[in-house]
């Protein structure tokens, strides 16, 4: 099985719209939304949950005021400034607490509990394009990387059971924790960019991350007709570094219109833009074939 992740560095470059179209064009794919922080793929794919489970990860410190004797050891030792002295005594700010257990360990009165955190939920669902694994991290939570890893493990297992040959993942923006986790075991990162200073800058950083983890890269230039000079610059950069550009996609209103209709673009319109994505999908399959030789 091949694992593909669609990323971009910059948010809003078109990752999810393109992942949705690829899910439609693919024939035997397990779909995975690894943007667990602000997932959107479900808005296009309208998944029907088959199973839904809680995601529990990490712990958080909670001070029991009946046992606390206000010594302040916890606040002094906390490196995250998560413990404050309030009118009601010392309190842990859940937003600041990193779950490191230092305060729990060193509290002389054993006054700090350390319950496990319920930080999100994840589902296996059916969609019109096949099985989908997805999740939602609760607001402000950490451990997105662990949730991404869990989703990938689950998707691999299902792919094996159902006999899929491709795992298609919608990734998160940025280059941090969830993106790094999404790259583990990935055969190809499809990087979506746009011909703007931010698009170019973020492309350069995210492909460096791919190189760092020895993940192969293919590039899609979205809205390529917005700025010809920027597009040429991106092409040059890709050529110089050996990253194949598998699609130039135009600035197309149909992208938004299809989203409003809860459809992927290749379902919504059969114009040339859709053909371009079909070619991109085939180019990508060829790259996967070449890679595995």
């Amino acid at each position: 099985m091949h694992e593909v992740v669609i990323i971009s560095g910059k948010g809003g470059a078109g990752k999810t719209s393109i992942t949705g179209a690829f899910a439609h064009l693919s024939e035997n794919t397990i779909i995975c939304d690894l943007d667990v922080d602000a997932p959107d793929l479900h808005l296009l794919l309208a998944p029907t949950p088959l199973t839904q489970e809680e995601f529990r990860s990490g712990n958080e410190a909670v001070i029991d005021p009946s046992k606390c004797d206000d010594c302040g050891t916890c606040a002094a030792m906390c490196r995250f400034n998560a413990i404050e002295l309030t009118k009601e005594g010392f309190k842990v700010s859940p937003l600041h607490c990193e779950g490191c257990k230092v305060c729990v360990e060193f509290c002389p009165s054993d006054a700090i509990d350390f319950p496990e955190k319920h930080c999100g939920q994840w589902s296996v669902s059916s969609t019109r394009f096949g099985t989908m694994v997805h999740a939602q991290l609760f607001p402000g939570e950490e451990n997105s990387g662990r949730l991404v890893t869990l989703l990938k493990q689950k998707a691999r297992k299902i792919a094996e059971e159902e006999g899929h040959d491709i795992m298609l993942c919608d990734g998160a923006p940025g280059i941090g924790c969830p993106v790094i986790s999404s790259m583990a075991g990935t055969d190809l990162a499809v990087v979506v960019t746009e011909p703007t200073p931010s698009g170019r800058h973020d492309l350069e950083r995210v492909v460096k991350l791919c190189d760092h983890f020895k993940t192969k890269v293919a590039v899609i230039i979205n809205k390529y007709d917005l700025n010809a000079a920027q597009t040429a610059g991106i092409e040059e950069f890709c050529k110089a570094n050996g990253y194949p550009v598998i699609c130039h996609f135009p600035h197309d209103q149909a992208m938004t219109e299809s989203m409003v209709q809860a459809q992927v673009i290749t379902e919504y319109s059969t114009n040339t833009a859709s053909d371009l994505l079909e070619t991109a999908w085939k180019n990508m399959l060829n790259l996967l074939q070449d890679n595995s030789k």
Binding site: D37, A38, P139, G140, G174
Partner: peptide, 14 residues
Amino acid sequence: APPGVSCPAISAVM
């Protein structure tokens, strides 16, 4: 701020 609503975004706005 960074995008999203998880820990990096919250720590930027808090």
